Simulated assay, not measured.
Amino acid sequence: MTDWAAFAGFTGVILAVLLTLAHLSRGIPHADGGDTHFAHDLDSAATAVDDDTDSEHVLDGKDESRISDDSPQTTDATEHGPSLASLSPAPTPDEDHESRAATDTTHAPQPAPDQSHEPSSANIPPHMLLANVAVSQGLLGAFLVTSAWYTSVPLSALGLSLSGLPSKLAVGVALGGVLYAVNRAGSSVSREFGLVPDESLRDALTPETTTGWALLLFVVLPLIAGFEELLFRGALIGAIAVGFDVSPWLMAAVSSVAFGVGHGAQGRLGIVVTGLLGFALAAAFVLTQSLLVVIVAHYLVNALEFVGHDVFGW
């Protein structure tokens, strides 16, 4: 006999863990040394610091330029207080040259602490981020599958069926292509209105080697699509609707909100866009009653996003 309440409890725990990890991932530093959520701000700040530092170095190289034309130029130590030079013996020419170089280095403004100067542990390369995603998604997915088995949830409630596989695969491919095209068109329109999505997380996960691309396309993205569709569509819509006699459309709305929030690392605009994408996948699941359709579509949207941007510059 199916224990729907226990399965709902397990699903809630997995969802809470996933949302917590999604919230924490907003602060994960990527290969550029910046946080995924604050990457653009850090880049802007670093540029400003570099500009200020360069201008100060130029000023240090010519001390007269620090003093305005209207102000009197004087070297009287009593006017501004004693200097370190006034407390030391007069240097030789060589010592004077070395002293000036040391003084320029000592008094040059130091840039504010930035994560790019932190130890190498803060600069996580893409393959390590991909491995982290694969492990976390794999463990959560395994726990969800084990929960469904333990509570005897029927496969049909999760949208799993072996019938009509070729047609379901074709529908999934078509749906994925359409959703990707709509997503790209929406992104282009939003940019015209000054709404730029935060792409730092995708950039952080973009591989730099052939092995990394193989890991992304054949391990990480299938795991993400399979786990997220099993949780947000199969469990939250299919199993809850069947087990508690709730409208699947109501659960589609609830799961889509959770799906958007779970992608908080992409910024506020990313949450909205992902929530809408989640509802489209939820609607497809309700209409087809197939988990395979939405898994294939989800995978294609993610894969085309990476390949299209990095390979074709879309």
Results as ranks from 00 to 15, higher is better:
Ala142Leu: 11
Gly9Met: 12
Leu129Phe: 07
Ile67Gly: 00
Glu64Gln: 06
Ser188Asp: 11
Thr92Ala: 14
Leu231His: 05
Phe285Ala: 03
Glu228Leu: 04
Asp94Lys: 00
Glu305Met: 11
Pro89Gln: 05
Ser71Gln: 14
Thr151Ile: 05
Gly212Ala: 01
Ile14Pro: 02
Asp41Cys: 01
Gly262Gln: 04
Leu201Val: 03
Ala241Phe: 08
Lys62Ile: 09
Pro207Trp: 03
Gly27His: 13
Leu236Trp: 12
Val261Tyr: 13
Ser55Tyr: 08
Ala46Glu: 08
Pro93Tyr: 00
Ala131Lys: 06
Trp213Gly: 00
Gly308Ala: 08
Leu179Ser: 10
Lys168Pro: 04
Leu162Gly: 09
Leu155Glu: 14
Pro125Ser: 02
Glu305Phe: 09
Ala280Phe: 07
Leu87Asn: 03
Ala101Ser: 07
Glu95Met: 05
Ala108Val: 01
Thr151Gln: 01
Ile240Leu: 14
Asp96Ser: 07
Ala6Asp: 10
Thr20Phe: 15
Pro222Glu: 05
Arg202Val: 09
Gly138Gln: 09
Thr146Cys: 06
Asp3Asn: 15
Ser255Thr: 01
His37Asn: 06
Gly267Pro: 10
Ser190Gln: 14
Leu169Ile: 15
Ser147Ala: 15
Asp60His: 10
Gly176Ile: 08
Trp314Cys: 11
Asp60Ala: 12
Thr209Val: 11
Thr75Trp: 09
Phe218Trp: 09
Ser55Pro: 07
Trp249Phe: 15
Ser247Gly: 02
Val189Pro: 00
Leu292Arg: 01
Ser83Leu: 11
Gly238Arg: 05
Leu287Ile: 15
Leu281Phe: 09
Asp63Pro: 00
Pro207Phe: 04
Asp96Tyr: 01
Ala284His: 04
Ser188Arg: 15
Thr36Ala: 08
Gly194Val: 10
His127Tyr: 06
Leu221Glu: 07
Asp32Ile: 03
Asp76Ala: 14
Thr78Gln: 14
Trp213Arg: 04
Asp60Phe: 05
Ser156Pro: 02
Gly275Tyr: 05
Leu217Asn: 06
Ala297Asn: 04
Trp4His: 01
Ala22Trp: 10
Gly212Asn: 02
Thr210Met: 08
Gly176Asp: 13
Ser71Ile: 08
Ala8Gln: 10
Ala225Thr: 02
Leu140Gln: 04
Thr209Gly: 03
Gly278Cys: 05
Ala283Val: 15
Val273Gln: 11
Ala280His: 00
Asp94Asn: 00
Gly141Met: 07
Gly34Asn: 08
Asp203His: 07
Thr75Leu: 10
Ala48Cys: 06
Ala253Tyr: 00
Phe193Gln: 15
Ala16Val: 10
Asp41His: 13
Gly33Glu: 05
Ser255Gln: 07
Ala185Leu: 15
Leu169His: 01
Ile271Phe: 06
Gly172Asn: 13
Gly234Ile: 02
Ser88Leu: 15
Ile240Thr: 06
Val261Pro: 07
Val178Pro: 10
Thr78Val: 10
Val189Ile: 15
Ala284Glu: 11
His263Lys: 09
Met1Tyr: 03
Glu192Tyr: 01
Ala108Tyr: 04
Ala280Leu: 08
Pro91Cys: 06
Pro222Lys: 04
Phe10Gln: 02
Asn123Asp: 09
Leu42Ile: 00
Ile124Pro: 04
Phe232Tyr: 12
Gly238Asn: 09
Val286Asp: 13
Val246Ile: 07
Leu129Glu: 12
Thr146Pro: 01
Gly9Pro: 08
Thr11Ile: 02
His30Cys: 01
Pro125His: 00
Asp76Tyr: 11
Trp249His: 04
Thr103Arg: 05
Ala112Tyr: 14
